[in-house]
Nucleic acid binder design. Sequence first.
RNA 1: GGGCGAGUGGUGUAAUUGGUAAACACGCCAGUCUUAGGAACUGGUGGCGCAAGCCGUGAGGGUUCAAGUCCCUCCUCGCCCACCA
Length: 965
Amino acid sequence: MKEYDHKKIEKKWQTLWEKNGIYHAKDFSKKAKYYSLVEFPYPSGAGLHIGHPRSYTGMDIISRKRRMQGYNVLYPIGWDAFGLPTENYAIKTGKDPRIVTKKNTDTFRRQLKSIGFSFDWSREVNTTDPKYYKWTQWIFLQFLKKGLAYKAKVNINWCPKDKTGLANEEVIAGCCERCGTPVEKREKEQWMLAITKYAERLDKDLDDVDYLPQIKQSQRNWIGKSEGVEFEFKTNISRNIKVFTTRIDTLFGVTYVVLSPEHSNIGEFLVQARNMAEVSKYVREAKEKISKKDLTIDKEKTGIELKGTKAINPANGEEVPVWVGDYVLADYGTGAIMAVPAHDERDFEFAKKYGIEIKQVVMPDITDSKNPHREGKESTIRNTVHIILRNPKKKEILIQFLKGEKWKGINPQSFLIGGVEKGESNMEAASREIKEETGYFNLKFIEEIPFKVQSKFFAAHKDVNRTITVNTLIFNLINEEKTEITEDEYFTKDSHEMKWIPENKISETLTTEDQQMIWKCYQAGKFSYSGAGILMNSGKWNGMDSETAKKEIIKFIGGKEKTTFKLRDWVFSRQRYWGEPIPVINCPDCGLVPVPEKDLPVLLPKVKNYQPTDSGESPLANISKWVNVKCPKCKGQAKRETDTMPNWAGSSWYYLRYTNPKNAKAFADKKNLKYWTPVDWYNGGNEHTTLHVLYSRFWHKFLYDLKLVPTSEPYKKRTSHGMILGEGGVKMSKSLGNVINPDEIVKTYGADTLRIYEMFMGPFSQSVAWSTESIIGSRRFIEKVWRVGLEVLKQKNSSALLHPSDGTFRLQNSSVVKLLHKTIKKVSEDIEEMRFNTAISSLMILATEMEKSEVSIKDYKKFLQILAPFAPHVAEELWTALGEKKSIHLSAWPKYDESLIKDEEIKIAVQVNGKVRAEIMIGADESEEEIKNKAISSEGVLKYIEGKEIKKVIYVKGRLINIVI
RNA sequence: GGGCGAGUGGUGUAAUUGGUAAACACGCCAGUCUUAGGAACUGGUGGCGCAAGCCGUGAGGGUUCAAGUCCCUCCUCGCCCACCA
């Protein structure tokens, strides 16, 4: 053994590990099981992305550590191989996607193996394998049986470029997630999965899983649960209007009702309107606009009144006008709303635009600091400006500026330059200073300018923290050393709305006045208030708080309490070739007939042309031999369903298949599922938290209800990793030419270096920019480990240096041993928290120390063991060179010795008034008194405290001493 | 507009959760080795200052013996969602 030759070593061990099957998970082993999972990759033609190994190494480290801790670990891998890129490639080249997929998975497999992941390759799955998708189809049939898969004519999101329907989740800002083309709305018959039936549970059960808080939050937001009331407005025409609201307490403030242009019964309403022609025209145009969903168009709300139609408020019998407006969504709630402009910002905007009445019915509680008031609209209020200046140089500029003409109308009330004097509040100091400097203080100008009322106003003065903040605009001007501002600068929308926010944290006296002003503005209808409060103008409910009033009013009008969700049913069909065929037969007599289970899988036939059709049918529709079948029920002529499933289908249950991948009788045997599920730890990309994770939780719950899986949740714990960006922090992309090929890195630096580098480059959950320049550091570290290994080997071969009794090296340095045990502790803990970067840094420190001093074989081996999950090849090589026969990855994770972690002598810092002046050494069991005395009399400190009175001495155990004089 | 998160050396970042800011690594500088270049190793490397020392975690303020960390105001950036009644 001489040179560190990564190529030789890595190849050798990868082959041996595979041959010995050391990473194979054993079904039903008596050991405790541990199921760690990473998202299986989509095998694209570009090969493995440099980001893949990040997630995989992270979970590999955890899996390896678990094995060493004695668990029976399942760490599987497979291919999520159905999908558009492969299909598009097939269209372009005419190659069979099966062949393309085979080629791609071969590449991916080779690449993954070259990095030395401890996957159990014997359990590899592939979603495009008929033996796999047979069960995807089978699960679909169960959905169908339970009525959760259904066909419906829906307005779907249609991508004109990919020529396929998209789920809401696949539409990003109105564009196709894959190709960025603006999405159109098309009415089509589609297969749907009723995920909304599970919305409540998908939301609630998040309480019981260990997901990162952000992940839970975004799932919750996506599900979008909100509790409210559904009730009807009677009208003077033949049809009532059903609405949904979460703010029934504002019912008396309803001044109009709005229907969505896409409301299902819009036709009946418009024919009865006096201005029918106009309304129909509006509805047509609005629909058009919505269908384009072009987000570059301004989002101003538009609408038209249905002349002659009146809705009757069930609370007080008042008649209010009925409108059609494009800000009301057809597919949320009932497609119609009660509009309360005084208490809803959108209604407010609309009412202002069309001159509809605004009626306040909720009084904000302006003394309640916890008032959840959100935001208001433009209003007017006296402007006060408060300034603190620390820099005396800027003072002159400010004073000049204040004296300028432009500023005359809006004199600041106060500003502060030198700081607060004893016994003076900031306000007082400011008053004094401005008076001294400008003489302006006694002048009180009141100018009304628009501003945006903010919640802080209502919360204002409870917590009197007398901070006075610089008005940003002035501050900027001062910083730029200007003495004038132009008309434009002053009157830009920006400076008013964003910057002229009057200070709210000033004093009790001011805020009270402000509050009165706000109240006046509010009553004058200058802004809307959407928080809770006390009811007014609401008949017998006056004086009641919002929450109680809600309950009472529901009772009174007989509304139905209802929970709605933003989550929509899942559009499950795609008019594409490369997906699982939906196993259904359309019979003219029997209707939709499921393919009998014994006939599964419905194989995806070979076609000549993969091009999707403009009519929106899958290329499968052209294969008459495949399409035309006998109806399983009546044996008559029938046709196969030609839609395929989206690629989320196969990935919704793949983790179940790993437990029993070759089972031909079921998607997995119950015994296997019982042993292995749930997944103990699942790591994946952030982008999948609202799609894949939610979908698979839905499938899992469904299977749980059928008693086919033993747990109600699939994943016990979910974490996510950050992306790897290109050099300089931009996205890695072909067009930018900054894509890193993992093969190259493995070739020149080795798999261990790549693994160490990817784990060391930054916090695991955060995005980090790739830097080829920096990799060398990780390589140097491994070489250092190697050098130390060679030294240790020399010891082994010269027994003269060893104690015959226990084989420890004679010259062993006790501080290295201590460091080793500290490092074992730190690495063990860091791995659990996925703080791989700091774990590696402590391994680096230890390696450096070991190189400097002597280390025993025994201790060096412990070091190798904690290094092994990170750099498995080099650790294994050195481990065996030291005479071990069994793989290091099957050895027991080292324990640290508690007694070796404690230091007898600690270095602590001595501060005087918070500044470090000296360092002293103290014994671990010295008393506080002794330590304090030592600190006070230490050199370095004396000159600072000489002749001063010591007020206080603070001792922080094992850290520092602060002497206050 | 809403939600989540983040601002620390030339760079990636660390900081025992309020206790010596910059650990570890890249880069850079110097030295050793080398015909040379490179590699490797050793040392140095926040700013100002000859020095003692002072300043320093996006800006300003507050609380504290002590603030990167807590509180308030503001600015900037990233991600996700976006008329969800």
